[in-house]
Amino acid sequence: MEKLIEERMREVISAVFNIPVNEIRTDASSDNIESWDSLKHMNMVSALEEEFLIEFDDKEIFELLNYELIKTIVLEKIEN
């Protein structure tokens, strides 16, 4: 289940930042993805919400800045 969610999450990130899925490493973050600006960030937030039918609060929106945090928050949301 976790693997499948991670897979879908990678696909969302790949589509938003326009990078191949296999290039998204677990240390991916706003620091090492060049196209990660504020607008793309918000697009990613919306895309994740749509993909997993979840909603992030204000604090979470600003926390989704790297792969591991995105994974943790998304999994937490889905489990709840």
């Binding site: 706003s30 620091d31 993805i33 060049e34 990660w36 600006d37 504020s38 960030h41 204000d58 604090k59 600003f62 800045l65």
Partner: peptide, 14 residues
Amino acid sequence: YRNQSLAMLYPLLT
């Protein structure tokens, strides 16, 4: 530094 703009705005927006 555009990838940092949200982090800079975060304390103000919240």
